[in-house]
Design a protein around this nucleic acid. Structure first.
Lengths: 415, 415
DNA sequence: CGTTTTTTGTCCGAGATGCAAACTAAATCT
DNA sequence: AGATTTAGTTTGCATCTCGGACAAAAAACG
């Protein structure tokens, strides 16, 4: 338990200031005063220190003429160049690498279409190492310019230990990617579940800005679940991110059944295999094509294919409903590359959620589908690392209500 | 967001000191220094203030001769008399009231066997008011001596608002018991889900001392779920405690089914009704007797009755397994008045948990059955109120590893 | 153009806190 | 009785935040 000394106090307030600057774009010191409820004196002192450390920079650009007549405000913003971060996402058939600056903007990105599934952890680490080196140099940087690297991958990840306990894209268990890559690249490297990164990215930059509670459900080859609760990523008591694939659908006496065996792309393809025979050549080797074929057929009206997707959607909706009764999140974000784009999947999902929720929960959660984008993962990795950089002493994570400059300065985020 | 000033600092450290004293029985200042990692100076200042406020008292009793030879330590302990709290538990057939002191010890308690189910909220409030007045005066106190009252009842409770959203023992919804009783008794009154109180009590005084993560599942007329996560009571984003009865057992396409309709006492009795006909007279009016009969028959070997209990146990085990994959709690405490005492219920429950958990979770959770006791509820109510009294600024709740004086001073609680 | 007004940001002293070190208190050991 | 040892307190200093006075920089005014 951390003892509370003046230093901690300063750390907390400095974090609040940094967070306000990050969330509300360029802001003046007076605005920070209002946002943080700190005194002008304190804000002045802290911003002076931050300027000294080059973490923030002033912006004298006249920009929009200040409407008042007094001394003009000097706007402060994060200094993009003070730090750079690499985000990596491992998926079954692709490695994505991107370099972002201190603001989370992507400088350069790189996608390696590689079938990871069958490779050993060492080979994967080789590929990641190459990808990172390449991407960093393409961005005009050097490895030594990096403040950190964060790798996201599906499965059960113990972030604190830097170990991937188990993943659908790895044959091995307990793979210490964190230490391994840190040693290879000479840069602090963290790893986390890919969906956790997505959740963090939605919180900082995406659809869930300003929301302190929401779920992210990702449907790809495997099922991922990211939970933000009370503004924090939710992890189990063991520090592991929960695995939605392990959710059980029925009591063992009624047949049991893991959700991953029904609702993932892998499962859907297995179910649909008889109906897809001989369609697109070597399907097993190209699951993405097989998925596309399955969805296309379903949307064209093929009853068998529709049934497969509907069953998957319904099962997932059932699980989501149970999660909603637990967490009561105002928003549930469903993402994924293929299935989630089809109404044949989403409709049954929504219906199952509606049918499974008690009346009192009928309207608490909005379920939205997020279109696929590599950006979100990588930004999540960046956010995760940046969060470490301007460390939140007691683990706060701030939303970013209007990073796009949407609504000026009135969102009551300070209260 | 709370701004960090010296005052907050002091509040945090004062809480740590109070918590150390509560958790580790009578302790000396040096021990507090070790436990909290604060400097002797600070501990001295804070304890002086606490002594001044009479929140703690010194204990000069020579007791066990200090083994060293220097100046003897002055042991400090909570002052039991500085505050008194009333805890109330509402169950379908009984109201329990108790007065506790500042240490959580019960001074006087009172059980009113009343069938609450059919009464209006007003009548129940009348009964509670009478019970509290009676119990307080029997304890030799006056209402004005009370620091607070806490009422626990099954169902969905919004503690912050003092409102019971919905409860199996109330016909009405959105009953503002908190404000109502506060007005009637002139004392700050809070309400919470009964299982939350039980969870808090297990944490402070019971089987889960020192555990920061565990679940409490209570099986009575309805199903309750209390979650302690990261040392805090877990509530959904809306501030409501989760309701285990709303957990769904199957996807709607497979028939759906609420857990409460299968695994509660009410459900078991409904299922068993055909087999119990004409056994013990007016069964519907005495569900407790009916339950006893059901269990007795099951244990005697009646296949029908065994099946009913087994189904209930298995369904509940299934739900618990899904909760374990989410929260990974080291311990799950199952409590209840009747069913949980029978192996006909517990065995299928354990089997279902084991069968439903993925291999990696096989050993993370120990499932224990807690014997029934009114004490635990009432102590939970006390703990809830006391927690407000020596307020934790950022919402910490401390465990009490060895309140019974089991292991001296080495439990590394300070780290 | 010079002065006033207004708003922003900084400096100064007061108050509160925690910590290290010196100091006092109270017991045992010799 | 005096030395020794351990417990707790007092003193001096550094750090933090805050309120109020002050300096700065622009528009508004005469």
């Amino acid at each position: 338990m951390k003892t509370a000394d003046p230093e901690l106090m300063r750390a907390i307030n400095r974090f609040h200031v940094m967070d306000a600057i990050r969330r509300f774009g360029p802001v003046s010191r007076v605005e920070i005063t209002e946002l943080t409820a700190l005194s002008p004196t304190t804000v002045s002192a802290i911003t002076a220190a931050l300027l000294d450390d080059r973490l923030i920079v002033p912006e004298h650009v006249g920009a929009v003429r200040d409407l008042g007549r007094g001394r003009p405000r000097v706007m402060l913003r994060l200094n993009p160049e003070v730090a750079h971060v690499v985000g990596v996402k491992l998926a079954s058939d692709q490695i994505t690498v991107a370099v972002t600056d201190f603001c989370g903007d992507i400088l350069h990105s790189l996608a390696l279409p590689v079938r990871i599934d069958r490779q050993t952890a060492t080979v994967i680490a080789d590929l990641v190492e190459d990808g990172v080196r390449r991407c960093v140099s393409d961005a005009g940087l050097d490895l030594s310019d990096l403040s950190g690297i964060c790798v996201g991958l599906p499965g059960v990840v113990e972030r604190a230990a830097g170990v991937c306990r188990q993943s659908p894209i790895l044959q091995e268990r307990d793979v210490p990617f964190g230490a391994d890559l840190a040693a290879r690249l000479g840069t602090p490297t963290s790893i986390d579940s890919d969906v956790n990164l997505a959740a963090l990215a939605e919180h900082w930059f995406g659809q869930a800005r300003g929301l302190n509670d929401f779920l992210v459900v990702n449907v790809e080859r495997s099922l991922g679940l990211g939970i933000l609760h009370n503004g924090e990523l939710f992890r189990g008591a063991n520090g592991l991110s929960p695995d939605l694939g392990d959710f059980m659908l029925r009591a063992p006496g009624e047949g049991g059944g893991r959700l991953a065996d029904v609702a993932s792309e892998t499962a859907a393809l297995a179910d649909a295999e008889p109906f897809l025979k001989g369609i697109a050549g070597d399907l097993p080797a190209r699951p993405d094509r097989a998925m596309a074929a399955l969805i296309q057929r379903a949307e064209a009206g093929d009853a068998d294919c529709r049934r497969v997707l509907a069953k998957a959607g319904e099962s997932l909706g059932f699980a989501i409903a149970n999660l909603i009764t637990l967490f009561a999140p105002p928003k549930v974000i469903v993402s994924g590359r293929a299935m989630t784009a089809s109404d044949c999947f989403i409709h049954p999902l929504r219906a199952a959620v509606a049918a499974s929720l008690p009346a009192s929960f009928a309207d608490v959660s909005e379920i939205v589908v997020r279109e696929w984008s590599d950006r979100i993962w990588v930004q999540g990795a960046a956010a995760m690392t940046l969060r470490d950089l301007y460390g939140a002493p007691w683990g706060t994570t701030g939303p970013a209500p209007n990073a796009l400059g949407v609504g000026a300065t009135q969102t009551g985020g300070a209260a």
